[in-house]
Design a protein around this nucleic acid. Structure first.
Length: 363
DNA sequence: AATTCGGGGGA
DNA sequence: TCCCCAGAATT
């Protein structure tokens, strides 16, 4: 697809975007650095995650791991704890693997070549483009949700953005229209324009510096673009979970498997099913591989929504003698104080809060 | 090409 | 509720 803009129009389009950015750029911590590793951290955190959510994580991460060597070889438990609550945890595992690659293959320096960047774990088309343009001012498209909205509306792109093929269409549009001399600010301007003006709902077209170029604005078809047809189906999952306290005043937790959802996070003993459980306390007693003393009353219900499924946890409590716990590498017995050293996914943080609340009520 | 990966925020 | 977010890897 072609933008159908003349050379002169493209030049004016770029000037409009860049001068808007000069006045309206958001002040963000990763814009105060020229350290490619720090920019890379921000790009990974910002995948599918809004700026405000990322801010505290970015600060903490940079303070804890100021150099790529500090981060690349720390333990997975600590790395996951650092990322706890941010979601999409394979991002940080891939990022760490990618950092090791950069150290071993590229002398510790983020490469300036797209093909080399794409060979790095966790770096895809978007991140490669963002790093090349932001770190090195090399003109490369960085097609994200912002670009889908801005260019989808500018040129009334009919391609369905949920299809992988459409990304190439958008990349060619950006390639044709982006600033060649100031790719660094041009791409970041698109991000800010998408985040503050070209919004998904109720875009502020009156404030848009390129509204005179926008076909959807002209034809009053803003709400039709970008085109997205994919439907989201969310599966319901039922879980039983039990907070087990030992006779030694500690708690039993379990490490999740090393693959799949929330891999290598910690949790309370849990059982999962597509259909609701029956006789829940008995089910727990029968299926835990050592003797436990279950309380019959359910502490409550925790709901948690992921992108592709919905968890519904029934929370129980019980006691167990530490010596009777079957040896298993996945189990740990820890004190209440130690809990905050282990990475728990948000649904289990909710479970723990519910347990503490119920304990407080009884006293 | 479609699915799997988290969690929070806005309307 | 529904859809989105500075997406990438796996199936």
């Amino acid at each position: 697809m072609n933008s159908k803009l003349s050379v002169e129009e493209i030049s004016k389009f770029q000037e409009s975007i860049l001068s808007w950015y000069e006045k309206n750029a958001r002040v963000l911590p990763w814009r105060k650095t020229s350290n490619p590793y720090h920019v890379w951290i921000s790009e990974v955190m910002l995948q599918q995650t809004q700026v405000n959510t990322v801010l505290p994580y970015y600060d903490k991460f940079v303070k804890t791991y100021p150099t790529i060597q500090d981060f690349a070889f720390d333990s997975e438990d600590k790395v996951l704890k650092m990322w706890e609550g941010l979601g999409y945890y394979s991002r940080v595992r891939n990022f760490q693997a990618g950092c090791r690659q950069v150290i071993e293959q590229f002398g510790g320096e983020v490469p300036r070549d797209k093909k080399q960047l794409l060979s790095i774990k966790g770096v895809g088309d978007y991140t490669a483009g963002a790093l090349l343009s932001i770190c090195y001012n090399i003109p490369t498209p960085a097609v994200d949700g912002n670009v889908f909205r801005i260019y989808g509306r500018l040129f009334e792109v009919e391609d369905d953005i949920s299809k992988a093929k459409s990304k190439a269409v958008y990349e060619s549009l950006v390639n044709e229209t982006m600033s060649q001399s100031n790719a660094r600010e041009f791409n970041q301007a698109l991000m800010d324009l998408g985040a503050t003006v070209c919004l998904y709902k109720n875009p502020k077209c009156v404030e848009c510096p390129v509204n005179q170029f926008c076909s959807a604005n002209k034809n009053n078809t803003i709400e039709k673009f970008p085109v997205k047809l994919g439907k989201t189906k969310v599966k319901d999952v039922h879980l039983l979970t039990v907070v087990l306290k030992t006779d030694t005043n500690k708690y039993l937790i379990q490490k999740r498997p090393s693959s799949g959802l929330l891999s290598n996070f910690y949790m309370f003993l849990s059982f999962e099913s597509d259909t609701p459980f029956r006789n829940q306390p008995k089910f727990l007693e029968d299926n835990i591989p050592f003797k436990v003393n279950m309380k019959k009353e359910c502490l409550g219900n925790v709901k948690h929504v992921f992108s592709h499924l919905k968890w519904n946890l029934d929370v129980y409590s019980g006691t167990v003698k530490e010596k009777t716990i079957r040896k298993d590498k996945t189990y740990s017995v820890i004190t209440e104080t130690q809990m905050k050293k282990y990475a728990f996914p948000v649904p289990y943080q909710k479970v723990w809060k519910m347990y503490l609340k119920s304990k407080g009520l009884k006293k």
